[in-house]
């Protein structure tokens, strides 16, 4: 393969512009790296789909708790549409009542980390996702840095500052005089890694397994505050208490709005 280190470059001028590189680099380095990364991405996508575990079994009680929170927040949002006396008060009592209120009940604090430790299938799922992300990336990195190091491979058509030289020209011995825009294969690897995402969206459709940013965001969220049920309960409880005992606006002015709408309907043809 292209293990030769300095056969590629033949400079025509002492400094930067117009280096001509051996076409062999193009066919044996540039294209193969891109192709390989693309294919590895496709394989990863399909492999993760094949290995995906089925839907996790959820506890019935847990369902009730999370749905209760949603129902309470919906009540808070839409309480204006139903009558005050009977309906809203009754429902608020259903949630907040000291002894029997749904939101008053002690709930097991389902911390996702604790859940991860106890639930083997979720743990396995997480591990699979991590492995499928880390292993191909590091393998490709090692492959590129082992085989394709020590020579100039490509020229970036956009300007770069000198600070990038260390990162992008790693392994190239002509330091100091060569334009920073001439980069090594490793930088091509990184460029591919970031740029391929768009290509994958096009070819593999939405929801592909390559979108690392989404995965990383998810991990960060989980490391932070998980869906803390106890807190959610307290929040919803307090929010419900705050709603004043006054007829909802929609409910109050229902007649006027009906009259307005009817007038408009009568005017139209």
């Amino acid at each position: 393969m292209a293990a030769a280190s300095t056969t590629g470059a033949s400079s025509s001028s002492a400094l930067s512009n117009s280096l001509t590189l051996d076409p062999a680099i193009r066919t044996w380095v540039l294209v193969p790296i891109s192709l390989a990364m693309f294919l590895i991405g496709v394989i990863r996508h399909h492999a993760s789909r094949l290995l995906a575990t089925g839907p996790r079994k959820v506890e019935l009680k847990a369902v009730r708790e999370s749905q209760a929170v949603m129902r309470a927040s919906r009540l808070r949002m839409n309480h204006a549409w139903i009558s005050r006396e009977a309906s809203f008060r009754m429902r608020r009592a259903f949630f907040n009542d000291k002894k029997e209120g749904v939101l008053q009940q002690k709930v097991k604090n389902n911390n996702p980390q604790a859940q991860m430790m106890s639930d083997p299938s979720m743990m396995q799922d997480m591990m699979m996702k991590n492995m499928s992300m880390i292993i191909p990336q590091s393998l490709t990195f090692m492959w590129v840095s082992f085989f394709f190091s020590g020579f100039v491979m490509a020229k970036a058509p956009f300007p770069l500052t000198q600070k990038f030289r260390v990162m992008l020209q790693r392994g190239i011995d002509i330091s100091g005089s060569l334009d920073v825009t001439y980069v090594s294969s490793l930088s091509w690897y990184f460029m591919n890694m970031f740029g391929m995402r768009g290509l994958f969206t096009l070819t593999l459709g939405e929801g592909n397994a390559i979108d690392d940013t989404a995965l990383m965001q998810q991990q960060m969220e989980q490391a932070g505050a998980g869906m803390d049920k106890a807190n959610a309960f307290v929040m919803e409880r307090e929010n419900l208490e705050l709603i004043e005992a006054r007829d909802g606006m929609v409910y109050e002015k229902a007649e006027e709005r009906a009259a307005k709408v009817l007038k408009r309907a009568l005017r139209a043809r």
């Binding site: 280096l19 540039l30 970036a156 460029m191 740029g195 995402r197």
Partner: peptide
């Protein structure tokens, strides 16, 4: 699409003009 643009720009530029 900025990163995708950069990638393809570099790729095609190098293939067409550098070699």
């Amino acid at each position: 699409g900025a990163m995708t643009y950069l990638l393809f720009w570099t790729f095609v530029y190098d293939i067409a003009h550098l070699f």
